[in-house]
């Protein structure tokens, strides 16, 4: 018994020895804005989201592609509203009233993004975000930057820069 405990300690100290270089580094954290779309959870990196707005009126603009729902008035500046449903191949949300809007900026453009609900804004260690599995469907492969477990659910981390870049090219 005694002998065994000693061995365990030895093992642990050995491991510490071998991991010394890593342990000394403070784990870097990242802020994520986690939101829900059709029951699934997604997230953007916090530094890409300037603001979270709720209860805003979206106004129709003629000639927009379907993914562009219209425009909103953010203190006198006009911002577009993008819906991610089409991109993520999700059915369109019926209930617009309870929607929230994330004001994102990336790839040289700025736009509102409509989400069903904002779940949380959290700081997570970078190491908790895993590489997306290779089995990811085709349409998600380029826009998903990682996968994370949060509150027993899988959160798909999306690359806002990539989405906006694709978006502005798609319009052009």
């Amino acid at each position: 018994m005694n002998q065994q405990e000693l061995t365990l300690e030895q093992v642990l100290s050995q491991r510490r020895e071998s991991n010394r270089g890593i342990v000394n580094v403070v784990e870097s954290m990242t802020k994520l804005v986690i939101f829900e779309l059709q029951g699934d959870w997604f997230a953007f990196h916090g530094d890409k989201i300037r603001e979270i707005l709720s209860q805003v009126n979206v106004f129709f603009v003629p000639g927009c592609p379907p993914s562009l729902e219209g425009v909103i008035n953010v203190r006198g500046d006009i911002e577009s509203v993008i819906s991610l449903h089409e991109l993520l191949q999700l059915p369109a949300s019926a209930d617009m009233a309870s929607a929230s809007y994330l004001l994102g900026r990336g790839a040289g453009m700025s736009s509102g993004i409509r989400v069903d609900e904002v779940v949380d804004v959290v700081d997570v260690p970078l190491s908790n975000i895993h590489k997306p599995p290779t089995t990811l469907p085709e349409h998600l492969r380029t826009i998903v930057s990682g996968i994370l477990r949060f509150k027993e659910k899988t959160v798909t981390v999306l690359d806002l820069d990539r989405i906006f870049a694709d978006y502005s090219q798609g319009l052009g």
Partner: peptide, 29 residues
Amino acid sequence: IKPLPEHMRRLTVVSGMVITGKNELVSVL
């Protein structure tokens, strides 16, 4: 007349937006 966001300028039909007294955004054709 307020300009549309940069990425929406390609919508040639709309030249900008105006804000009405009721705080509505209206597309100017």
